[in-house]
Design a protein around this nucleic acid. Structure first.
Length: 793
DNA sequence: TTGCGATCCCTTTTT
DNA sequence: GGGATCGCAA
């Protein structure tokens, strides 16, 4: 999860290897095909590698880097950029293995994501970017909170200007390298001008909070590189060899960052050593601003570029490959590029039309089980879906079928309420200007600093031009705060100071280790005891789990600490101003937490089936793959309707899913699907119809299923089950609200144990349940995963 | 104020 | 399915 590829660290010793020693070099090339070899050997000058799915791309990249090092290029001169931490970690590991003992030869090598690189550059060159090095990285929920405030500050209504929509407009602008002023300049109509106004306010508030959002990481880095010659020259001098994976998914900002580091446009005849690798057929991030023309026009940008095509597929059987090829051929905006394999034989792709999502999930689970019985280990199997919402039914079915599974959601842990709270404390510790985090935790647990008090503090801060935390420090002189509030605020400030020594991070009474600091914050803030108290009174697993999660956060900090290399952290550079080591480490930790991706959680070491979205599946491969939800509106997604470019992207997404499969592929659709509580008739995906008949079997089993038989069974009682599909007739009445009388104790898998407060009747009967420590929730009786623990009475 | 309950409203993908 | 929000009652 964490990574500390050192950057901008000077090494006194030169790890240059003697150029002789042909043997290791030969070993690097021995098992490569001719085009693969060419890609490895072409080390000087721009290179475009068009790598079709399954063509051995990762192998080429890792060999190429190892080869460079063998040829005497110091590893620290090499920069390799990926899209996920997972990909970066794997690449680093494989290169380390190739280079052999001690990993000394790979010392200083930089392999990381664009975002991680930018975060580090911005800390190193914070001043040039107009930031302070302890800046926070805001996630989507922080961004939304801030946009909402910005909309209000502009005196606009959040009803007419939905924060979500505005945020997405701002994000698009940033991905196109437009700052607030440039965006405003192009805003003609009323609504766009309002967005521009909010953009301005939002940017101002971000800077006041000393924070950046995900898009800023790229935008501000691109800007610093473009406008600041010394930043640019330092980076160019350091990284002589640049390699970018998944180049088809880079956006304008990333393109500019890459170009500036590579040295495009420099006077003279310098041919930058930039190697980009990608596949236009796997471009699936258009919605995030990725611009496929970056890869298509590479040769125009670098006229000296060599182009190498890797076409042969080493991954999939012929029928799977034929399915993928036939499908992707439907895309019109595409250079045709046949996929081929020298393998023959292989099972047909199986397509099944099911009755409903429960049938579909059960069928997929049974299919996986049969693959397992045929010898495929669980870890070599995966289930893909278009939207995360589809994972739930699948999970239930896998649990019932006793199929071990893990969901690839790297962010899930950090999305938990208790973790978000703890991290918010830490963020304020690292960066007291972070008003968004401060607002989150100032009254959690309750310490008599309510909304009213906080609003007053905010207005003081605004009036005096200081941060809210500074206003809290001065609360003693705030006339409109009563003594009780002043006391409460004073205690809060004192608590924070106890962790930071008033922000100095120096002194013998302070924590010496990061884990110790996190532990202190979790305990002394009262968070832990708050959840402990709840766990005690409610006896629910959910609350006990929260306490455990907090403990896990402490151990994740300890883990980070052990892997942390201060020399690798540019912010810890003594020349950068003598940052206390604990603060530097805390920054690094918070940064690594902010940049985790869902795909990072894919752990093949576990003996379980992996569930993930199609987007997260890119770059992976599995022996057997089940793709579910092949329906119009889902895949292709409804949002892609009436938009040819978006529709082609959906097709590429489907293509990516298919090409992950090595030997077996199941694709399912269901005739009926429950969408926000309503069962709706669906239409099978057009993509199914686009598959080649001779390599695909299609079966309609939608009338072979009649079962709502055990939907509300308590999944925790692990009833043994045979592997056969159960087809149960009759008896499929969904439970009504009358089954949960007021006063009943129920269990919800996420919210824990609660008491039914009230119930409504009718087709979409709902119950209001008070959950301990979570609050009250209104749940749809027919679909909520409720278990009756104890009926009223 | 705070807690509760009802009503509204949405709904992709992710660094 | 459930998050957000707003009005109402205590």
């Amino acid at each position: 999860m964490h990574f500390d590829a050192p950057i901008l660290t000077d090494f006194d010793d030169d790890p240059r290897h003697a150029p002789e020693a042909p043997d290791p070099t030969q070993a690097l090339l021995a098992d490569l095909t001719e085009p693969q070899k060419q890609a490895v050997l072409h080390t000087e000058g721009p290179l475009l590698v068009l790598a079709a799915a399954g063509s051995g791309k990762t192998r080429v990249i890792t060999r190429r880097i190892a080869y460079l090092v063998h040829c005497g290029v110091p590893a620290w001169q090499i920069l390799a950029l990926t899209f996920t931490n997972k990909a970066a970690g794997e690449m680093r590991e494989r290169i380390g293995t190739l280079l052999g003992e001690g990993a000394r030869a790979s010392r200083g090598l930089t392999v990381c994501t664009f975002h991680a690189l930018c975060a580090r550059l911005l800390r190193r060159y914070a001043e040039a970017a107009g930031l302070k090095p302890e800046f926070a990285i805001f996630d989507t929920s922080d961004q939304l909170a801030l946009v909402k405030k910005a909309v209000e500050a502009c005196q606009l209504s959040t009803a007419n200007f939905q924060p979500r929509a505005i945020l997405s407009a701002i994000s698009n602008a940033k991905n196109d390298l437009l700052d607030a002023e440039q965006f405003a300049a192009g805003a003609m109509d009323f609504s766009t001008r309002c967005v521009a106004q909010v953009y301005r306010a939002y940017t101002r508030m971000l800077r006041q909070a000393n924070a950046v959002d995900f898009d800023d990481l790229l935008l501000l880095t691109a800007r610093a590189l473009a406008h600041n010659a010394s930043v640019r020259e330092e980076c160019r001098a350091r990284w002589q060899y640049l390699l970018i994976d998944e180049y088809q998914d880079t956006n304008k900002a990333q393109f500019q960052i890459a170009s500036l580091i590579a040295g495009e446009g420099q006077a003279g005849s310098r041919r930058p050593n930039i190697c980009v690798v990608g596949d236009p057929d796997q471009a699936i991030y258009g919605w995030r601003g990725a611009d496929i023309s970056n890869i298509l026009d590479f040769e125009e940008h670098y006229p000296a570029a060599a182009v190498i095509k890797l076409g042969e597929n080493f991954r999939s059987t012929a029928p799977i490959l034929a399915a993928a090829d036939t499908l992707i051929k439907r895309n019109t905006r595409r250079k045709h590029k046949p996929l081929f394999t020298s393998k023959s034989g292989g099972d047909r792709v199986e397509c099944v039309l099911c009755r409903d999502e429960h049938h579909e999930a059960r069928l997929a689970a049974d299919w996986l089980r049969s693959r397992h019985e045929a010898g495929t280990p669980w870890r070599e199997m995966a289930v893909f879906y278009r939207t995360n919402a589809l994972s739930r039914v699948m999970e239930d079915a896998l649990r019932e079928a006793n199929v071990p599974y893990t969901i690839a959601r790297g962010t899930a842990f950090y999305d938990r309420e208790e973790i978000k709270h703890a991290l918010a404390y830490l963020r304020v510790v690292a960066n007291p200007a972070d008003g968004v985090s401060l607002a989150r935790i100032v009254n959690v647990p309750t310490r008599a600093i309510g909304d009213t008090t906080y609003a007053r503090l905010e207005s003081h801060a605004a009036a005096q031009g200081v941060t809210v935390f500074e206003a809290m420090r001065r609360a003693g002189s705030a006339a409109d705060l009563n003594a009780r509030a002043q006391g409460a605020v004073g205690k809060f400030v004192q608590m924070m100071d106890g962790w930071t020594a008033g922000g100095a991070f120096m002194g013998q009474s302070l924590s010496t280790s990061l884990a110790d600091l996190v532990d202190r914050v979790v305990k002394e803030s009262g968070l832990e005891s708050m959840y402990k108290a709840q766990a005690h009174t409610s006896k629910s697993d959910a609350d006990a789990e929260r306490v455990e999660n907090l403990a896990e956060l402490v151990s994740s900090a300890r883990q980070f600490e052990m892997e942390y290399d201060p020399a690798a952290d540019p912010a810890a550079d003594p020349a950068a101003g003598g940052t206390p080591p604990l603060l530097a480490m805390l920054r690094g930790y918070l940064e690594s937490v902010a940049l985790v991706a869902d795909a990072d959680a894919v752990d093949p070491a576990q003996g379980s089936v992996t569930l993930m979205t199609l987007h997260a599946a890119k770059g992976l491969e599995f022996g057997a793959v089940a793709m579910i939800g092949l329906e119009e509106g889902l895949l292709p997604h409804a949002r892609a309707r009436e938009n040819d470019a978006a529709m082609e992207e959906e097709r590429r997404l489907c293509f990516v899913g298919i090409t992950r499969a090595m030997r077996r592929l199941l694709m399912t659709a269901s005739k009926y699907r429950t969408i926000r509580g309503m069962s709706e008739r669906t239409i099978p995906s057009r993509f199914l119809g686009e598959l080649p008949g001779e390599h695909v079997t299609i079966s309609d089993q939608s009338d072979m299923w009649d079962g709502h038989d055990e939907e509300h069974e308590d999944a925790s009682q692990e009833t043994p089950r045979d592997g056969n599909r159960r087809i149960v007739g009759g008896g499929g009445v969904r439970p009504g609200a009358h089954q949960y009388p007021v006063g009943s104790v129920v269990r919800h898998p996420q919210f824990g144990v609660g008491v039914v407060q009230s119930a409504t009747l009718g087709a979409d009967a709902r119950v209001v349940v008070a959950f301990r420590g979570v609050g009250t929730k209104t749940l749809v009786v027919a679909y909520a995963r409720l278990t009756l623990v104890n009926p009223a009475g």
